[in-house]
Computed example of a mutant assay.
Amino acid sequence: MLTLLLYTYISIIGIQLIYFLGIFRSFAFYKEEKKRNLKKLPPVSVIICAKNESENLRENLPKIIDQNYPEFQVVLINDASSDDSLKIMEDFAKKHAFIKVVDVKSNETFWGNKKYALTLGIKAAKYDHLLFTDADCKVNSEIWISEMAGKFNDHQTIVLGYSPYKRIKKSFLNALIRFETLLTAIQYFSYARIGIPYMGVGRNLAYHKKEFFNAKGFIKHMHVKSGDDDLFIKEVAHKENTALAFSESSITLSEAEKSFKNWFYQKRRHISTSKHYKFFHKMLLGLFYISQFLFWLLLIILLVYQYQLILVISLAVLRFLVQFIIYGNSFKKLHDTSLKWFIPVLELFLIMFQFVIFIVNSFSKKVHWR
């Protein structure tokens, strides 16, 4: 039995190395294209959908309003808020003519569906190039729009951006959340690099309006409460029309959840959406997770039984070394190298956390946008 486990362990490490060197390497050693001339940038509609985000709107809207960009509008969507979000939006709109407010009332058919609100906002947008973020996101520079919109050209009509979470020192939860966000970015950037994009994040995402209308909006997955970003991107994105933006000036920052309970709820919603991915994407993503899980499980078993210790440890060291090089280089590209020394510990905890979510989602009710 131990011999069988050893051979399985060797095979699993082989699979892991294929992922690290065959897929994730494509992003780890990729050089982002230089930004384009400011005068050639297209007019852009920045779209922000907010539900009960009054404080975040007050704090974050000024940095978007003050963007250094030749021509843009801001579309603020009030998604049936119960606080004073609408009033704050209207106050900003009175001061700035380029702000348009879309007030979405509660709709029994589309209750709690962010996609319905976004659809109304997209239809109201003045320009064809759309840039999306959330009310709780802070843009990282005054040239955020320029950095994202600069990726558009005649062929590339989708721009996948990056939106990490702010660092909180001496917080293991925060480190785990940031680590998971980094790994997610490495995956969707890497898959896009090899020509099979499967998702983006709505906190920092851009696409041409024609992509939305050619796909008939979110109609194919309107019944799914989440997925306005990843399910839409997996439907319309392909090798030729997708660009990446991850420069420090192009990112948006969010406040991470401060309790495991809230983060657990958030990740349940995100992970539940993945079952609607294309089969090929689910297979690749699932195989990588299974290989991670089995690597740790088999490593622990073989170490406990002290079976072929030199071989087992040598292979583990090789795997960790390759992982450290690929992840370390990717973390540097994504502007957060503080976690690279804790990769093994964070990875183990994240695998266990995701396993628990998978079990809970298999037996619990769905979770919605709130």
Score class of each variant (00 low, 15 high):
Phe293Arg: 05
His276Ser: 07
Tyr307Gly: 05
Leu299Ile: 02
Lys275Gln: 10
Gln266Trp: 02
Phe295Leu: 02
Thr273Cys: 10
Arg269Cys: 00
Arg269Ile: 01
Leu298Trp: 04
His276Asn: 13
Tyr277Leu: 03
Ser291Lys: 03
Gln308Asn: 13
Lys275Arg: 10
Leu298Asn: 05
Thr273Asp: 13
His270Val: 07
Leu299Cys: 05
Gln306Val: 05
Leu285Lys: 04
Lys282His: 01
Tyr305Trp: 12
Gly286Thr: 06
Trp296Leu: 15
Val304Arg: 06
Lys275Cys: 01
Lys275Asp: 02
Ile301Glu: 09
Leu302Phe: 06
Thr273Tyr: 03
His281Tyr: 06
Lys282Gly: 09
Ile290Tyr: 14
Lys278Asp: 13
Tyr305Pro: 00
Tyr289Gln: 07
Leu297Asp: 03
Met283Gly: 00
Gln266Asn: 09
His276Gln: 04
Phe280Asn: 07
Trp296Gly: 15
Ile310Glu: 07
Gln292Leu: 15
Ser272Gln: 10
Gly286Gln: 05
Ser291Asp: 04
Arg268Gln: 15
Arg269Pro: 00
Gln292Arg: 12
Leu285Gln: 11
Arg268Ser: 15
Leu302Trp: 07
His276Leu: 06
Gly286Lys: 05
Phe280Ile: 12
Leu299Phe: 15
Lys275Glu: 07
Leu298Ile: 02
Ser274Cys: 03
Lys275Ile: 11
Gln266Met: 04
Gly286Leu: 07
Leu297Asn: 04
Leu303Pro: 03
Leu284Gly: 00
Phe279Cys: 02
Leu298Cys: 05
Ser291Ile: 07
Leu287Phe: 10
Trp296Tyr: 15
Phe279Thr: 13
Gln266Pro: 00
Met283Pro: 00
Ser274Lys: 07
Leu285Trp: 04
Ile310Val: 10
Leu297Cys: 09
Phe280Glu: 09
His276Cys: 02
Leu298His: 04
Ser274Thr: 08
Ile271Cys: 02
Lys267Asn: 10
Thr273Glu: 13
Leu303Arg: 11
Arg269Met: 02
His281Gly: 00
Phe295Glu: 02
Ser274Ala: 00
Tyr305Leu: 10
Gln308Glu: 15
Arg268Phe: 11
Lys282Trp: 06
Lys275Phe: 02
Ile300Tyr: 05
Leu297Phe: 14
Ile301Ala: 12
Ile301Tyr: 13
His276Pro: 01
Lys278Pro: 02
Thr273Ala: 12
Leu285Val: 01
Met283Phe: 15
Met283Lys: 09
His270Ala: 09
Ile301His: 08
Tyr289Ser: 09
Lys282Phe: 04
Phe280Tyr: 10
Ile290Glu: 14
Phe295Ile: 01
Tyr307Ser: 05
Leu284Trp: 06
Lys278Gln: 12
Ile310Ser: 07
Tyr277Arg: 00
Gln266Ser: 06
Ser272His: 03
Gln306Asn: 12
Leu309Ser: 09
Leu285Phe: 06
His281Leu: 00
Gln308Ala: 14
Gln308Asp: 11
Ser272Ile: 00
Phe288Ile: 06
Leu287Gln: 04
Met283Val: 08
Lys275Asn: 01
Gln306Arg: 14
Leu303His: 06
